[in-house]
Structures are given as structure tokens and as C-alpha cells.
Design a protein around this nucleic acid. Structure first.
Lengths: 215, 215, 215, 215
DNA sequence: AATGAATGAGGCTTCATTCAT
DNA sequence: CATGAATGAAGCCTCATTCAT
């Protein structure tokens, strides 16, 4: 008699995870490229090795797929923030380091920036669902609060410095560079993500926040 | 005593212009609210006193209507920029004034900011068409270049200050506050456009650019 | 007091006729080019120096305009047939002459041929209306009957020769050459209306009918 | 005893093919009846057991459906031509047989003739696409060339006889009878496809080509 | 876990025609 | 005779989703 196929289940599971991941990859690219309404379930399926039915099987529908895409994208930037090492840096250098990490992450992940823009077009309705499950903002705010406290204690930072404000200013610069590169480039003839100018803008971002915070 | 209707624009013409304007108003709101793909020509027409057919008569189609909306929105911010008066201001005050005008315009016109975000989702393809007809960026750049030159001559500004960069930094702050208010507010629990915080952020924007530029 | 404008009416009338003629010219070209359903009232009007309103004023609507076009086209071929002179020709030469006149007329008026094709697509519904007003076929049939009678009497033509059949055979050849030139040319790589081959086909048409009729 | 369903084509596939065929049947009738522009996708769908959506699923659009209709119609006449058997016929009889086969095919397939007329209204743009994929004219021309060669060798046919010309003359007669029956019948009061006259016209067609070719 | 076929609602666009001036 | 604006019906097409196997 044939023995039971004990190895079977794990492989199926692994295939399942792989299928999910592949769908998420393609969907991320599509949603980032075309927006939510501009993306097509058919097209996403066609770019996958699986079929459209699988999207419904694994995710339930277009909207849930989009949320899953968003969740994974936010998870990745949280991971990046978690890996910043700045224990031995003085407050000023630490803030600059955070600005640079944000700058580089956003530069490296334009599709994430686009997803955030798309989310805002949709009044963040999907992120609202995410936030009920995960704390997206806590870590970076906690990090900044610690640095700012030290900086204020040492008399290096202005007394009204606020962690969320600082994060906002850094994000504004880093997000705008990527999110608005097309209109800005078209109108002003300057490509904000031109590699030749990356160092310039990274320094500019650091200068901006450091000078703003100076006591 | 004033006579009746001194301007002799024929009724027809006025009605036509009014119809166009009404469609543009509604379309601006719809496109800003739902994005390009998320907006419905039927819905735009329903919110108008005219019919769907008129949209095609006056504009030609959904895309051309969207471009017309975009054009009018950009025309308005150019008009706002043109009205800034800063002849008698010293360079530092002038830059701060420009930052504040931008800040206030964007705060007052969130639908414009949303249209710009939508444009970037579409890789600025429509703005590219606009730019072939109108110079959207020239005026503000010229204005800033003049101020920066004066500031550098007086030793007030850092020597590497660049007009387009300055405009970018100001825009980043002012655009982000409005464009990303939903995700930011959801994640960090802070409403960036809360009227109670408007003065704070306007000052923050001015500080940011003034300090960045300081020699 | 100003005198009455006595010369006015005649001019208006002449302009009216000219307007009608211009519309008919354009409409003939359009209907022949695109078929009835494929033609656009807007387009016809745009190609005219008048406006769309005039089409409705002068003709009543698209369908009536089409009928007017058809009527004028048929009137012209009747005129051509009327001008054939063959009193002094023997029956054989006369038949050949008629074939050649038909051949040349159809070759010179492809738009007429196309209108006839279009009419057949529409089951000749409009020609049926025309026929109630004008006798479109009588003249040519009478002409042929006369020739055939003489030919039979002289023992030159086969005894079962029939005028309508003869006209049909000639028409088939002359109409097909023009009406089906596009599919035929595409499939067989031969342009049936190539000027270099016109003489060849004209002779072929004459041979065909003369030999068919031979006793 | 016959076994049940010996061919194991899956149900799905058969259903798909049946759906396609049903749509093609209906579409052929509609396009032949109303022309391309006069036909309605909605109407075609309504006359089917499937829905309008399926037309787009299986064919892609109205135009592609029309091309598919055309392709099938041409495939059928090629098949008819292929089945002519005339190995043992002398050249004269062979040419007459070909004329008769064409005559009978066209008489039996008026919808094909109408499609060809419609194609010519559209300047054969769709047939041009077809011709890139299939050789529509080659077979019949090859057949005729062979017969003409034999006839010339035997001194039966005139020396300038050309295969494409012969095909054209036959086609002209057979196509005209069907394609122009409505205008011709209306104008001359004679129904060219009246069954009572079929034999007469078939013989007339044969006579025409045989006499034209005679040495 | 996978697949081709099917579906219904709704999207954008176009047309012939008429109205007000 | 002339004109720009307006209309309503209807056309073609696309989408997210589900069914049968």
C-alpha cells in the first residue's frame, strides 16, 4: 500500500506562501503605478504565474489585496526604522542620521511613497483599518522624543521642538522629493531624484532639520 | 443712477461661460475627491444643472475636462504668486513672506494639492501637456532668484542657495501638510490642518526656510 | 422711408439653391465614403460653409438628405444615357457603344456606384421612394429593346435576347469593377480601375456583350 | 451498438466553441443585414443565448467580431471552390462548371455577398488584415490558369485570355445578381434571384464566359 | 490549489435633432 | 437664413466578481 504523503502539506504551504508573495509583489507594482481605481485585477493576475481566481482565494478581493499590499509596505519601513543605530551619536548627529535614513529609504522605495499618496487620495481609509491592528507611528516618535529630550537637556535644541513636528518636516522633504517628482520635474525642469543630485538633497535635508532645531 | 447691465456680453455667451465654469467647479471637486479613475462623468454631470452631453460638447471628454480643471487650478496659484508684494522687504523677510503665501494658498486650496498628487500618480502626463502651453514655474523661480541674489550680496544667505531648491523645500512642507494629512493624522494622531495649529505650522515653515538659508 | 428691397428675394433664392447644392455635394461625398450609418450630420455640416441647422432647414433630416443625394445621382446617369447617340450605328456597334458609355460613366462616377451599393445594403428602401416619383429604368430599357429588335430582325442577335438581361450583364461588369475594386484588388493584387487597364476592360466589356448576343 | 460520445472533447471547450459559433452565426446575419455601422452589438447579443459581455470575452470587440465573421465567410467559399471536380472535363466545360459553381454558391450565400459589399464600402480595410494571414485568391486563380492553359493549347480559347480577368467577369455577374438585386428589382421590376429564373441566369452566366473565351 | 467561461452593473462616448436668439 | 448651445436616447466597452469543473 502506498504510504501517506507526509511531506506534502509543508510544500503546499510553502507554495501557498510563495503564491501570496508573488501576488503581493505584482500588486504592489500595479497599485503603485496606476492607483487603486486605475489598477486591474485581470492585469495583476496576468503578471502572475497564477490565475485571477487565486487572488480571490488568497485575499478575498481587490480591496483586501490592496490593504495587504499597504500593510507589507508599512511593515518594511518600520523595519528600516528599527535598524537605525544611533546610541553613540550626539543629538544633532542622531537627528541628521534619522533624516538621512528616511531620505534613503524613501528614495529606495518610491512605490511605497506612491502608495501613501494613493492612500491620501482615499482619505487614508485603508490605513485606518491597519492602524487598528498595528502601531505604525509609535516607534519613530519614541525614538525622536528621546533624542529631542537629550538635545534640549544639553541646550542644543530649541525648547519648543516636538517629535511629531520634526518627523513631519523630515517626511515632508523626503516624501515630496519622490511623490511630486513628476510635476516638479515637468514644471521646473529639475529631476529631484537624479542620482547626481542625491547627495546634495540628502545633505539639504539634514541641514534643514538640524538648523531648524538649533537652539 | 446706475443703468441696467452695462456690459453687453450676449446672454448666450455668458450662459456658455457659466455652464463651463459650473462644470469645472463640480469636476474640480470630484476629481480632487476621487482621483481621475475614481471620478465618474455621470456623477459630475448629475451635480451640474446641465447634462452629461454638455461635458462632451464643451470639453470633449473626461480627460480633457480633467486637463481643463488642472489648468484652472494652476492658473489660480500663479495668480496668487503674482500678487505677493515684497518690494520693500529685506531678503530674509521676503523669503519668509513667500513661504507664508505658499503655506496659506495650499492651506486654502486643498483640492489643488490633491490634484497635484493625482497628477503625480499619473506621472504628470497631463501637466506635461499644460507646460507646452503655459510657463507654470518661471514666475516663482524668477521671484526667488531675485531675492536670493540680494540676500547673497548682503551676506545674509549661504552662497549655495538655489531658487528651485528653496521653492522645493517650501513646497515640500506646505504640500505635505495638506496632501498627507490623512495618513499622517491617522498614524500620528495629529491633524496637520487643525486651525488651532495653523499659526504654529506657518511659523515653522518660515523658520525652516529662513534658518536653512542663513549664511 | 426706406424702399422695399426688391432685388433681395432673387438673390436669397439663388443663395438658397447654392447652399442646397453645396450641401448635396458634400453629402454625396460623405455618404459615398462612409455609408449611411457611417456618415455624420455634424461632419457634413462642418465641410460646408453653412451650418448644421441649414441641413434640417433645407432637407428635413439625415434620411431626406440621403434621398436627395440619391435622386441627384440617378438623375445624372439618366442624363448620360439620354445623350448617347447611336441612330446611325448598326445593332452590334450600338450595343457596344451602350456598354462603353455605361463603362465610362461608372468609371467616372465611383461615388454613384458606392451609393448604389449602400442602397442595396438598405434593401433599396430609399430608391423605392424615388421610383414612385421618377422612372429610373424606362429610358435605357426602351433604348436597348429597340436595338435588340433591330438586331434580331437582321439575324444578328440570338432570338432569346432580352433588354433587361443585357442591361444587367453590362451593369454587372461595369458596377463590379468599381464597386468591388477594393476587395478584388486586395485579394487578387490587381487594381481594376488602374488607368493603364481601362482600355482593356472597356474592350472586354464590349466583347462580352457582343459575343453573348451573337446569333 | 454505438458507444456514447466517443470524442472526449471536454464540455467546457465544446461550450466555448459553441458559444463562439452561435455568436458568429448571429453576427453574420446582423452584419449582412445592416452593415457594420448599422449593426448593434447589443442586438447581436440579444439574439444569442449568451450576453454581450461574451462577445468581448471571445472576440475582443465589434470590429474583431466583424473580422471573424468575414474570415469564416471567406473560408466557406474557398472550401466550395476546393470541392469542384473537373479533372475529366474539357476546358470549355470546365470553365462553364466553374461559372456555375460560383453562381450557385453566391446564390446560396447572399449574406456573404452582402458582407463583401460592406467590405468595399469600408475600402476592404478588414479584408486587408485577413489577406495577411490567408491566401484568399490563390486557389481559384491557379485552377483557372490551368484550364486556360489547356484551352489555349487546344486552340479553343482566345490567346489573350487571363485567369484573373475570367474570374472577374464571372464574379461580376454572380455578385451583381445578388448584391444589386434590390435596386435592380425596384428599378426594372425584375427579381434577379427569383427561383423561376435561376436556371436562365445560370445558363446566361455560362454562355457569357464561354463565348467571351472562344477563340 | 487551479482554470476557462460567464455575468451584470455601470463606465465613457456619440448621435441626430431641436431650441433660443 | 444663420448660429452656438442644448438634449436624450442609445452606442460600445470594461470591471470586479463568481461558477462549474
Amino acid at each position: 500500500m502506498a504510504g501517506p504523503r507526509t511531506v506534502d502539506t509543508p510544500e503546499r504551504v510553502r507554495d501557498s506562501a510563495r503564491t501570496r508573495a508573488e501576488i503581493l509583489d505584482v500588486a504592489t507594482a500595479e497599485f503603485a503605478a496606476n492607483g487603486y481605481d486605475g489598477s486591474r485585477v485581470d492585469e495583476i493576475a496576468a503578471l502572475t504565474r497564477t490565475t485571477k481566481r487565486m487572488i480571490y482565494y488568497h485575499f478575498g478581493g481587490k480591496k483586501q489585496l490592496y490593504i495587504a499590499v499597504l500593510e507589507r509596505a508599512y511593515a518594511r519601513i518600520r523595519a528600516a526604522e528599527r535598524q537605525v543605530e544611533l546610541d553613540d551619536l550626539d543629538p544633532v548627529a542622531a537627528v541628521r542620521r534619522i533624516a538621512e535614513v528616511t531620505f534613503d529609504h524613501h528614495g529606495a522605495h518610491p512605490e511605497f511613497i506612491r502608495l501613501v499618496s494613493i492612500e491620501n487620495i482615499h482619505h487614508a481609509e485603508h490605513v485606518k483599518e491597519l492602524v487598528e491592528m498595528v502601531d505604525l507611528g509609535g516607534p519613530i516618535v519614541a525614538l525622536l522624543e528621546d533624542i529631542l529630550r537629550r538635545g534640549r537637556q544639553e541646550g542644543l535644541f530649541r525648547s519648543d521642538a516636538d517629535a511629531i513636528d520634526v518627523h513631519m518636516m523630515i517626511s515632508a522633504f523626503c516624501v515630496f522629493r519622490v511623490a511630486n517628482r513628476h510635476t516638479f520635474g515637468t514644471i521646473f525642469g529639475r529631476d529631484l531624484v537624479d542620482p547626481a543630485r542625491t547627495d546634495h538633497y540628502r545633505a539639504m535635508c539634514g541641514d534643514m532639520i538640524v538648523r531648524y532645531l538649533a537652539a
